[in-house]
């Protein structure tokens, strides 16, 4: 099913070439880059923001955005941590409860956007603060630590010592989301709705149900990311990973997702995630400071956006608009 526009395909190809190029350069210049330790640690690092990037993808295809993904992930992690600490006999409930909280957060975003017609960027900016506020109210500030060993073991477990569990989870979500976007009516309608909401209305696409579903899916994936973080760092904190938000948007932009809606692929997001992880690890192994990473990523975001704006394939203005209503 070749649903993508030709330009998206060629963009993906150049992104793939870029990824391979970065890999090759680092493999040659940095002696520690190609070691098993480094590759393995990368495998544990990128799934968490990779999952968050996948979470934002469907909302961006719909012409919206979800700024609350990181806050949602943290709230889900806090939920799980509280349950595990407070009632060890109900610990099995922790994971489903966290996923349910994430899904509910997403559905709430969808409600604000679909029913109250708030612009997505403002609605989720508000809920970002709201969800983070809930998290702080629950934890009263400090991180929740001291989780059961069986749970944190997941975060550091590699299958056969090679394939980190978080990486496997990331791969499963990527495949599932890809199938959802390309092989289900929801995915197809989502893309068309993102391309032209007015035409979608006249074609009989039920906008409200669609939006709520999309944002709920986003919340669900964000909660998964939160659970991965919880297992890996062994603590739940209301303001963990605040720098992830911009990184996640950078990934989607780099992935060729159109902020105006209608275009975006899971393959693009995977390539963008991997190439950014390469850059990040590479800078590390070349002993740049952690601050130079932000500088580098910020520069890259501006460069990619400018390049795409210059070639006319972008429309950021839509993020600030309400959905157009036919007269």
């Amino acid at each position: 099913m070749n649903a993508r526009q030709d330009t998206t395909n060629s963009y993906l190809k150049s992104l793939a070439v870029l990824t391979v190029l970065i890999f090759a350069v680092l493999a040659v210049t940095s002696p520690s880059f190609l070691t098993a330790t480094n590759l393995n640690s990368m495998g544990f690092q990128f799934p968490e923001f990779g999952l968050l990037a996948l979470a934002v993808l469907p909302t961006m295809i719909s012409g919206g955005i979800d700024l609350s993904v990181v806050a949602t992930a943290n709230l889900a992690a806090i939920t799980a941590a509280v349950i595990m600490k407070a009632a060890p006999e109900l610990a099995w409930l922790a994971v489903p409860a966290a996923l349910a909280v994430g899904t509910a957060c997403g559905a709430f975003n969808g409600f604000l956007i679909a029913y109250l017609r708030l612009p997505p960027i403002l609605a989720t900016l508000g809920t970002m603060q709201l969800f983070a506020g809930f998290g702080i109210a629950i934890t009263r500030g400090p991180a929740i630590t001291g989780l059961p060993d069986w749970y944190t073991a997941f975060g550091n477990w590699s299958i056969g010592g090679v394939l980190p569990l978080p990486l496997l989870l990331f791969a499963i979500v990527a495949v599932a989301l890809s199938v959802l976007l390309r092989r289900t009516p929801v995915g197809l309608r989502l893309r068309l709705f993102g391309a032209n909401p007015v035409a979608a209305k006249f074609a009989g696409i039920r906008e409200r149900g669609l939006l709520i579903r999309i944002y709920a899916i986003t919340g669900f994936i964000a909660a998964l990311a939160g659970l991965v973080v919880l297992a890996r760092v062994n603590s739940a904190n209301a303001d963990y990973g605040s720098s992830y938000l911009l990184l996640v948007i950078l990934i989607n932009i780099l992935a060729g997702v159109s902020p105006a809606g209608g275009f975006g692929t899971v393959a693009g997001v995977m390539l963008a995630v991997i190439s950014l992880q390469f850059i990040s690890s590479g800078l590390n192994s070349l002993s740049f400071s952690a601050f130079s990473r932000d500088l580098f990523f910020g520069g890259l975001l501006v460069a990619v956006m400018s390049l795409r704006a210059a070639t006319g394939s972008s429309g950021f203005a839509t993020l600030f608009q309400r959905k157009a209503k036919p007269s």
Binding site: A195, F202, I205
Partner: peptide
């Protein structure tokens, strides 16, 4: 109002 201009002919027909 009628078309998803930058999407495929196929999707425009089957939507």
């Amino acid at each position: 109002e009628g078309l998803f201009l930058n999407q495929t002919i196929r999707d425009n027909i089957v939507v």
